[in-house]
Simulated assay, not measured.
Amino acid sequence: METAERKRPIHLGDHVRRMRTALGVKQSALATELGTTQQNISRIEQEEDVDDTTLEKIGKALGVSAEAIKNFTEDGGVFIQTLNDSSVGNSGPGGTFSQCTFNPLDKLLEVIEENKKLYERLLASEREKVEILRQQQQA
C-alpha cells in the first residue's frame, strides 16, 4: 500500500516566526526595527500569506533575504546571510545566499575569551573591594 506524501501549502507567517526565533530575535525587537508594534509582528506571523514588500522589510531587519524566509525549513536547510558584503554566490534554483567571511567557531572562541577576561577583571575588582572593607573593619 502506497502512502501519498501530502504537501502542505507554505505558511509564510510561520516561516517568519521560525526564522526570527532561529536567529534569537524577539518580536518586540523586530517590531522596533521595523517601526511597528509587537502585536503587528504577531499578526504577521499568524498569516498564511505575507506580501513580498513586507517579507523584504522583515528579511532586511533580520539580515536574511526574503527568499531565505520563503524557503526556510525545520531542518535548517537554508543559507542565512550574516554579513552585508560582496561575497554573494549563486545557489541555482534554490535562491541566493551569502557566504560567511569568517569562521563562526573562531568568532565564538574570541567572544568566550573576551568574556573570560571581563570576568577576571570583575573578580579582581570585587577582591579589591573586599580587601578595602576588611582594612576598614580592622581600623
Rank of each mutant, 00 (worst) to 15 (best):
E2A: 12
E5D: 03
R8I: 05
R8F: 11
P9T: 03
P9A: 07
H11A: 09
H11Y: 10
G13H: 05
G13V: 06
V16R: 00
M19Q: 05
R20C: 01
T21H: 11
A22L: 07
A22R: 13
L23I: 07
V25D: 03
K26F: 06
Q27C: 07
S28D: 08
S28V: 15
S28T: 12
L30S: 01
L30A: 01
T32Y: 03
E33F: 03
L34N: 03
G35E: 05
G35Q: 06
T36Y: 02
T37D: 08
Q38F: 01
N40E: 14
I41D: 00
I41M: 02
S42V: 04
S42H: 14
R43M: 08
R43Q: 12
E45D: 08
Q46T: 12
E48L: 04
D49E: 15
D51A: 04
D52L: 14
E56A: 13
E56P: 00
E56D: 11
E56T: 13
G59H: 04
G59L: 04
K60V: 06
L62F: 05
G63N: 12
G63I: 05
V64K: 02
V64Q: 02
A66I: 07
A66P: 04
E67V: 11
I69A: 02
I69S: 00
T73V: 05
D75N: 12
D75L: 10
G76R: 03
G76H: 04
G76P: 01
G77P: 02
V78K: 00
V78T: 15
V78D: 00
F79W: 06
I80H: 05
Q81V: 08
D85T: 14
S86E: 12
S87L: 13
V88Q: 15
V88I: 15
G89N: 10
G89L: 14
G89Q: 15
N90L: 09
S91N: 07
S91V: 09
P93A: 10
G95W: 01
G95Q: 02
G95T: 03
T96E: 05
T101N: 10
T101S: 14
F102T: 07
N103T: 09
L105R: 12
L105P: 00
D106C: 09
K107E: 13
K107W: 05
K107L: 13
K107V: 07
V111D: 13
V111I: 11
V111M: 08
I112V: 15
I112S: 06
E113Y: 09
N115A: 08
L118F: 09
L118M: 10
Y119D: 06
E120L: 14
E120K: 15
R121W: 01
R121I: 01
L123I: 04
L123A: 09
S125I: 01
E128N: 15
E128C: 11
E128I: 07
V130A: 09
V130K: 04
I132Y: 08
I132L: 13
L133T: 01
Q136L: 09
Q138G: 01
Q138D: 08
A139S: 10
